[in-house]
């Protein structure tokens, strides 16, 4: 009798805890929406893209430059980090001796644990002055792209490595038996076979890059503009929220929540794409 009761209590407690943790994500969506709603009802949502400028206290809510900034930074970081990440994974899997490969993977996981504010500090103090020598002001789109690329490189390399490790050994053996060179085995067999895993890792990396705040806030200069060159400073959606949230009131505050909501949708889109790739692989 009493045993059954303790068991029921345990079950109820655990069930309640899981309902709580499941609801958090819904709460996040709900509160973001609730805080955005006053402004969404007041103005035409297209104005967030079309307004000529970002002067939220004067009723101009053009988020387009920030949107462009976020997108450019993410695309740039992917262009730098994706090839490097794949090459590093190939190195660890096919070219390095076992011990060196293990040490390298350990180095990558150490790197993935370094907080973004430390990357930002390094970018601001070391990298930005170097870029300033080439072309002032130094804090720029390029600085953001490079630091973010370093930051997401471990994610991409480690997941590409995991994907290549799970390619069946028979594929590679078969290719070797057919007289493929090592290079052909890697680029012609291993990478195509591991493609879904590699792409999933890249999408994870892109999601991290677009949601990253501290690095872009510290090294990108935060000027509201669509950049003309990689040396121009930019402001991203995330940096915009971090810069203005502490003093924003009423419509201004709501506009920041709208940009948060936009960001959330983009990241959810990334998650949905990588999930559908994973689902397809499992189907096969």
């Amino acid at each position: 009798m009493s045993l059954a009761r303790t068991e029921r209590m345990l079950y109820a407690g655990c069930r309640l805890a899981s309902i709580c943790s499941g609801l958090i994500v819904l709460f996040i969506g709900f509160f973001l929406f609730k805080e955005s709603l006053p402004l969404l009802l007041k103005i035409n949502p297209m104005r967030f893209l079309n307004d000529p400028g970002w002067h939220p206290t004067e009723g101009q809510f053009g988020l387009f430059p920030m949107f462009a900034g976020s997108l450019l930074i993410t695309v740039g970081a992917m262009i730098v980090a994706a090839p490097l990440g794949i090459i590093l994974a190939v190195f660890c899997r096919f070219f390095a001796p076992r011990k060196i490969a293990n040490a390298y993977q350990a180095l990558l996981s150490v790197l993935s644990g370094i907080p973004s504010v430390v990357f930002g500090l390094w970018g601001l103090v070391v990298l930005a002055p170097i870029i300033r020598h080439v072309q002032p002001p130094g804090v720029s789109l390029l600085a953001g792209v490079l630091v973010l690329a370093v930051m997401i490189l471990p994610t991409i390399a480690l997941s590409a490595n995991a994907a290549m490790t799970s390619v069946p050994f028979e594929y590679l053996q078969g290719a070797a038996a057919l007289g493929f060179s090592k290079w052909q085995r890697v680029w012609g067999v291993a990478i195509p076979a591991a493609r879904p895993g590699i792409v999933t890792g890249m999408i994870l990396g892109a999601g991290r890059a677009i949601g990253e705040t501290m690095v872009v806030l510290m090294v990108c200069g935060n000027v509201v503009q669509v950049p003309d060159s990689v040396f121009d400073p930019v402001r991203t959606l995330t940096a915009n929220i971090a810069l203005e949230m502490s003093y924003a009131l009423s419509d201004h505050r709501a506009a920041l929540f709208v940009s948060g909501l936009m960001l959330l949708f983009v990241v959810m889109g990334f998650v949905a794409i990588s999930e559908s790739i994973r689902a397809k692989v499992i189907e096969k």
Partner: peptide, 9 residues
């Protein structure tokens, strides 16, 4: 996968 700045908001 929710970005940290969204948790901040």
């Amino acid at each position: 996968s929710v970005p940290s700045i969204i948790f901040g908001l």
